[in-house]
Design a binder for these strands. Sequence first.
DNA 1: GTCTATATAGCGATAGAC
DNA 2: GTCTATCGCTATATAGAC
Lengths: 181, 181
Amino acid sequence: MSRPPLAREKVLDAFERILIDDGERAATMDATARAAGVSKGGLLYHFASKEAMENALLARLDERVSEDLTAMAAAPEGPVAYFIRTSVMQNDPLDRAILAAARLAQGGNTVAAEELRNVRDRWAQTLRPHARDETALDLVMLVSDGLYFNNALSGGSIPGPVPRDDAMTALITLVEDAIRP
Amino acid sequence: MSRPPLAREKVLDAFERILIDDGERAATMDATARAAGVSKGGLLYHFASKEAMENALLARLDERVSEDLTAMAAAPEGPVAYFIRTSVMQNDPLDRAILAAARLAQGGNTVAAEELRNVRDRWAQTLRPHARDETALDLVMLVSDGLYFNNALSGGSIPGPVPRDDAMTALITLVEDAIRP
DNA sequence: GTCTATATAGCGATAGAC
DNA sequence: GTCTATCGCTATATAGAC
């Protein structure tokens, strides 16, 4: 437990990158091994099957969400503004983990779909006290989902039609005015 | 042109259903042929390649969006309310076409991703006059994207964590108040 | 712990009968 | 217009050397 082997993390990073940039179809064990600089046999020592590799990626997502919930609760600008602003792709570890999980889910992996719904619930729980009512909470969650959806379509590198900088600040103000308790 | 062969539509319906219910990975030509009640050879008479079959599905999406834009412009409740309300899965032909295209896009099909962005633009164009400014338009589009994203994760049949009935009416009111010109 | 070699299965696509 | 049979390729996974 204490410290995961380096090769393991390197493989997961490569798998994540291919999922995001090239899609679920391209994220084969072969391509992952090549990108990680190991052989297919070497990869299969760390992950006994593709399913095991996918589950490891989802476990990493879970850890990163826990860290984000802590940061969100402590954000100076407030949880809602933090949540919306960080919903646009910043290419940080959490964003990448979510995007990769979304690829798996849309490829037919039901565990990934469940995990994403679980993640969404944890965010909603933390934000609930900061919204006037359930409708206001719905609004915040849906705007965030929308931002992620556009990122997911854009493929991670190419920026999608999402508000940037000034437009994002204006959007946050609009949402906060609409949901203020 | 006048009337597409029955088998052609039956194949596209089957392909769409498998994409939505079982994911992009499962939507093979073999599985599609079986579900449509034809042989693989029979399928390949209508669609010379898998790419041709995917493009036919995207063309069908385009037609359905054109019909929806007409309906939206004429909706008694107003375009914005119509747009948000119809963003939740009703399992109608348009919803299914979008969900299927999203699956293709996330599987790595760049044509599908472009088509979805194009569809989004056409909606935004029609809604623009009904929003106070670009930020308000962003809000409407993102809430709609969020609703679709949740549907996409849920898989079409299982309802996701989206507002229903009363909650939806409340959400529409909240959004309309926030964006009123 | 990492490698090469190989087994097995499924996919997209072709050929040609009917 | 629809079928069966089959080819070529690639994917996951196994076996066993180093």
